[in-house]
Design a protein around this nucleic acid. Structure first.
Length: 849
RNA sequence: GCCCGGAUGGCGAAACUGGCAGACGCACGGGACUUAAAAUCCCGGGUCCUUAACAGGGCGUACCGGUUCAAUUCCGGUUCCGGGCACCA
């Protein structure tokens, strides 16, 4: 084999060959499992950085790459800043797609899932993400899901898991139940075209509503979360304060009682109530219409209509109508009898399913009352300092809270807010009502009639009823070889060896629960398991949690702002109350990155605008792929993927690489060590200044707002300056020691964003130590400072000239220089100077007349 | 309807605290190197007007108005785009 001649540059060497470099380092990194291992450390500060774990669909998509590129950059930056970093990864690996795949390809869900995990792990490693794989969590394996079951038993024991028959959201495509949170505009969150229907089923619920108040209140603590997410959760919890008031129907009505309790946030308007409107599904409606078949039919129609509207997602826009029951109810405040109606715009699942209708002061009631010519009684007037003006009739409906109550007996003359308090007090005293709080948040239905999930560890015994599995008998193993169909009902019902068991109480024959858990249970606490992933005696050791928690930085898509993040918060609060953890909240700082889009639309298979990470890595390398995803837009904004953009980043990396190649051994050949600033040539001083300015900009962006696009731009500027100084380098005006310093620091600055390149460059400079443990470069403010600065001079706010002054010039000196400028002189010639504004170091504005 | 974002060249974007609008990159045009191409390196560029050219001037950050010596930035109003919530009583 011919030896290559070293005196002539080999063109293949000059080329930046991403594949060669990245394969080499990937091999080294994977052979050292301790490289990214985190351990509790006595002196180093800890930093737990976490990205949302993926569902193992089989391949990463660009959204993952962006998410993980951000997290990895941060993790590497923190390592280099001396932190003990925990940066784990895992797999949200239960869920329906595995069953669909099983049917389609005749592959068992477990096999399909584990194969996908293996494939995606290869992708992640190829991309160079620095995860501590010794802490890997795979939620579909018994060593994880047994703790789901364990937690379920604890929740059950605490009265926070309960079973009830209820109307549930059913997706015909998934053939299973959905939580309220998974219904998006009446459609299944997974099948945008499939309307969700209502079914009545026995379901397991978790009592998240017990924590509703705390979940709301603690949002205040989450100052490290995006405002947007906090507002979304606040809306979702939907707390509203109101008053319950009992209206008496007079005499016996039926099993559902003889009073109707309404919920209102505007009890101050109760003297204006002119009817009482019930949800069609309100239990008392049946009693009210029992003796009238015509009415019964009409109510049936209302129920059907409401259900249809709910399924179609357009409840909220249907025309209001209703039927009069022929009955009257007594307003306990003024003794008036008001007609009782059943109306299609009243919902059973909010408040009490019954309202008092106040047409004068509620838009919806107003619309309803107009249609049926019901009375409209004004009881609120505009507040005014002028008593005569107060009597002006407002345009109806008049819904303000800033009004004065009138025609309301003893309450007349009060402001709305005072009236609400006084009326609530009276209601409570006279025992026909009380102040209360209503939430939009509902308990979390976790039963799924599916195979590929955590079995709910409960048993049904004819003698003892519902009995929990004993802790020592966990895990309840999900059996293999289960025939999967998408017909209704859990596939586990057809597995006798699973279904038939013995009662933990009496030992007699019993049946297992065949429903499995919502996969959001898995993701509600997985990040705790990372802290102690191999523990087989407990979900985790509380001391390890105390060290690592809360998560310092969580990064993921905003699509999880409600579901995953509210369940996780709930789970943490429950674990805290159990005494397992000390933190009230799981996540200190949350970052939600923007979507990756292409041609202005979200990437999706149906649009055919997807970009494959594998293809990008193959064509441009992992570094270019990662770096482009950081460069193309600030991380919180949507990113429009453009093929030509990634080429630019690749070109830049090549440019950096060639700079090192051409100046190999710069440091060694240098005779002088770090030359003193005074002795540097102007060219060298320019490079030195730019280097320190660059370190400053990059460091600031990492610490502050994470605008990686601008820190990459800063490094590009530095390289442009270096290329511009090529002659000075060749002529020796720039000392080797300075070039070596640039090379060292640029390798470090690139390390979080382009780790392969950074490691290669680091090695090229002759360094042998682990780059991740090398300290992040420090800038010297004095070296970064400019000697002289260019100051724009404006005349009447318009740019008229530029003057160069020393960096420390006084305002007087700057002003003199500005007035001496020829262009400025011309612009102010013949005019009178009114004022001269000097902003030190920034600008001069001369105001003339 | 309510709440939250956003709007800057042909494109992605920058301007962090009210102080030169458009850094950096893409695409494009020109040049160097090459037999040629690729790669690489260098240069150019918001827009309109005046000019043979050198230059110079006007306009310009969605739109209208305000505050200020000075506004992409602050205030008031409007439009469009994206997201969340929605007969929630």
């Amino acid at each position: 084999m011919a030896q290559e001649d070293r005196s002539t540059p080999n063109p293949r060497e000059e080329r930046y060959d991403a594949q060669r470099i990245e394969q080499k380092w990937a091999g080294r990194w994977q052979s050292d499992p301790t490289l990214y291992a985190a351990e509790a450390h006595p002196t180093k500060p800890k930093f737990y950085v976490l990205e949302m774990l993926p569902y193992p669909s089989g391949a990463l998509h660009m959204g993952h790459v962006r998410n993980y590129a951000i997290g990895d950059a941060l993790a590497r930056y923190m390592w280099m800043n001396g932190y003990n970093v925990l940066h784990p990864m895992g797999w949200d690996s239960f869920g329906l797609p595995a069953e669909n795949a099983a049917i389609k390809n005749n592959t068992p869900p477990r096999e399909w899932t584990l194969r996908n995990i293996a494939a995606m792990k290869v992708q992640m490693n190829r991309l160079g993400f620095a995860y501590d794989w010794s802490r890997e969590v795979t939620t579909c394996l018994p060593d994880y899901y047994r703790w789901n079951q364990w937690f379920f038993l604890k929740l059950y024991a605490a009265g926070l898991a309960y079973r009830k028959k209820s109307k549930v959201n059913w997706c015909p495509q998934c053939a299973t139940v959905l939580a309220n949170e998974q219904v998006v505009g009446g459609m299944c969150w997974r099948h945008e075209d499939t309307p969700v229907v209502q079914r009545e089923l026995e379901q397991w619920f978790l009592r998240i509503t017990k924590y509703a108040d705390e979940l709301l209140r603690d949002l205040e603590k989450l100052q490290g979360w995006p405002e947007k997410v906090r507002v979304m959760q606040q809306n979702w919890i939907g707390r509203s304060e109101g008053v319950l008031v009992d209206f008496d129907l007079g005499g016996t009505v039926g099993p559902a009682g003889s009073t109707i309790t309404v919920f209102t946030t505007r009890v101050d308007t109760i003297y204006g109530a002119t009817s009482l409107n019930l949800a069609p599904e309100h239990p008392i409606v049946g009693d009210l219409v029992a003796r009238n078949s015509e009415l019964r039919g009409q109510v049936e129609n209302l129920i059907a209509e409401q259900r249809r509207a709910k399924e179609a997602g357009d409840i909220g826009s249907i025309e209001k109508h209703g039927v009069f029951t022929g009955r009257y109810a007594k307003n306990p405040f003024n003794g008036e009898a008001v007609p009782v109606w059943v109306a299609n715009y009243i919902l059973m699942d909010y408040g009490t399913g019954a309202i008092m209708s106040v047409p004068a002061h509620d838009e919806r009631d107003f619309e309803f009352a107009q249609k049926y010519k019901l009375d409209i009684k004004v009881v609120i007037l505009p507040a005014s300092t002028d008593p005569d003006e107060t009597m002006i009739e407002p345009p109806l409906p008049f819904t303000t809270m800033d009004g004065i109550v009138v025609n309301s007996g003893e309450f007349s003359g009060l402001g709305c807010r005072e009236a609400i308090a006084a009326m609530a007090e009276l209601a409570e005293k006279k025992r026909f009502g009380k102040a209360t709080v209503s939430f939009r948040l509902k308990d979390w239905g976790i039963s799924r009639q599916r195979y590929w999930g955590t079995p709910i560890p409960m048993v049904y015994c004819d003698k003892d009823g519902v009995v929990p599995v004993e802790e020592k008998d966990l895990p309840v193993i999900l059996p293999d070889n289960v025939p999967i169909t998408l017909a209704g009902g859990s596939p586990l019902m057809n597995v006798p060896s699973f279904l038939n068991t013995t009662c933990p109480k009496c030992g007699g024959p019993a049946r297992r629960e065949t429903d499995t858990m919502d996969t959001f249970v898995d993701s509600s606490w997985y990040f705790y398991r990372y802290a102690d992933a191999k523990n087989d005696a407990a979900p985790f050791d509380s001391e390890k949690i105390a060290y690592w928690f809360p998560i310092d930085q969580y990064i993921g898509g905003v699509e999880h702002a409600i579901l995953h993040l509210i369940y996780s918060r709930f789970w943490t609060k429950f674990m805290r109350d159990m005494g397992l953890v000390k933190n009230d909240e799981p996540v200190e700082r949350l970052f939600t990155q923007g979507m990756v889009i292409r041609n202005g639309a979200k990437m999706s298979k149906s649009l055919g605008n997807t970009v494959s990470p594998d293809e990008m890595v193959e064509r441009y390398g992992a570094d270019a792929t990662r770096m482009y995803s950081l460069f193309a837009a600030p991380p919180d904004r949507d990113l429009d993927w453009q093929e030509t953009g990634i080429e630019g980043v690749q070109r830049f990396l090549g440019r950096v690489y060639r700079f090192y190649l051409r100046n190999a051994g710069a440091g060694k050949s240098a005779t002088a060590s770090a030359a003193s600033t005074a002795s540097l040539s102007p060219e060298a001083r320019g490079i030195q200044r730019k280097l320190h300015q660059t370190i400053k900009r990059v460091s600031n962006d990492f610490q502050g707002r994470w605008h990686f696009n601008t820190c990459i731009a800063a490094i590009m500027e530095l390289m442009n300056e270096i290329y511009g100084a090529e002659e000075a380098i060749a002529s020796g005006k720039i000392p080797g020691a300075l070039i070596a310093e640039v090379q060292r620091d640029v390798a470090l600055l690139l390390a979080p964003m382009a780790p392969y390149m950074a490691h290669e460059l680091w090695e090229m400079t002759g360094e042998t130590g682990n780059l991740l443990r090398a300290p992040w470069p420090k800038y010297d403010a004095a070296l970064a400072a400019e000697d002289e600065i260019e100051i724009p001079v404006q005349v009447n706010g318009k740019l008229r000239g530029l003057v160069v002054v020393a960096a420390g010039a006084t305002n007087d000196q700057i002003e003199q220089a500005a007035l001496a400028n020829e262009k400025v002189k011309a612009a102010i010639a013949g005019k009178q100077i009114v004022k001269v504004i000097v902003v030190p170091g920034k600008l001069v504005n001369i105001v003339v007349r």
